[in-house]
């Protein structure tokens, strides 16, 4: 087994970071100018007001995995079956996304360890056509789910998506049913499935695997919903309440289990997975941290 060797190397990647490159960066929330290095060291959370910057799959992998990880299903690549053309042909949108995004598609799957526990993480990436779900997203996730069911490996999916990818039309829609059916298998296998909801998670992604976790963890302040706020505003002709469709709103209404600061995300996932898979150490009696890896 070569779990920790990167066997698949994405031949299509180009370098571009979600956070603009440079030495300084402005926090969109508090407008402070902050050194990029300081933001990175703070796990892409604004050290001034706790704003969570939107980051890509590679950054989440760095934050969550112990170190080495093996990319899976990179060979699954999109095709323009329908010959879809809006203002631009879909084919060209795909080429541009490949140039622009570090990710090989809107979801990237990798296998590695969190605090020594073997896990598979599927992480969506907004820089690839808005994190939209087409066939590749559904297919890679389905394969990850079936692999985890087969090998009894806990699965974490970090969601970040504008919804289904229109350019693949009904094929995109059917990925909702595909992933839901694969999650039925994962549930049957008794394997933990944890969703990390990040900003933004909407549309067909929300109406499928994002809302089917054993546990729903959300980053603070993330937009999470089925219909987008603009659509709802147009439909009802009224302004939307403050904080509508944010993580805190969903927790209040019972659809998010816990809101976790990105700086504590790895520790929380580790703890959840350990408890759900019975990999716990004896309590030390003080009710505090008892779950450190031995």
């Amino acid at each position: 087994m070569n779990w920790f060797k990167r066997v698949a190397q994405n031949i299509l990647t180009r370098s571009k970071k979600e956070i603009p490159e440079g030495l300084w960066n402005k926090c969109p929330s508090c407008n402070e100018i902050i050194p990029v290095k300081e933001i990175e060291e703070n796990k892409y959370v604004c050290p001034r007001d706790g704003y969570h910057f939107r980051i890509g799959a590679d950054q989440y992998f760095k934050l969550l995995f112990d170190g080495k990880h093996e990319f899976l299903f990179e060979e699954i690549q999109p095709v323009d079956v329908l010959g879809f053309k809006d203002k631009k042909p879909y084919r060209r949108r795909l080429e541009e996304a490949r140039q622009k995004s570090k990710a090989s598609e809107a979801v990237v799957i990798a296998r590695g360890r969190i605090d020594r526990i073997p896990v598979v993480i599927g992480c969506m990436d907004f820089s690839f056509i808005g994190g939209s779900m087409g066939t590749v997203v559904g297919e890679r996730l389905k394969r990850a789910m079936l692999l985890c069911a087969e090998e009894k490996i806990p699965l974490v999916v970090v969601t970040k998506s504008g919804g289904a990818r229109m350019q693949e039309s009904a094929f995109s829609l059917m990925q909702m049913a595909k992933t839901a059916a694969a999650l039925s298998e994962l549930r049957k296998a008794g394997v933990p499935y944890i969703v990390v909801l990040t900003d933004p998670t909407t549309g067909g992604v929300t109406a499928s695997y994002a809302m089917l976790g054993d546990v729903h963890v959300a980053e603070p302040g993330a937009l999470i919903g089925f219909a987008g706020p603009r659509v709802i505003k147009e439909a009802i002709g009224k302004d939307l309440p403050e904080g509508f469709q944010r993580s805190e709103f969903l927790l209040e209404h019972g659809f998010v289990d816990v809101i976790v600061d990105r700086r504590q995300l790895k520790e929380t996932l580790s703890r959840l997975i350990r408890i759900l898979t019975h990999k716990v150490k004896k309590a030390n009696g003080n009710g505090k941290e008892t779950l450190k890896a031995s």
Partner: peptide, 10 residues
């Protein structure tokens, strides 16, 4: 369901 390519990655 869905259409994709399976590219051999070297």
């Amino acid at each position: 369901m869905g259409r994709y390519e399976e590219k051999r990655v070297v």
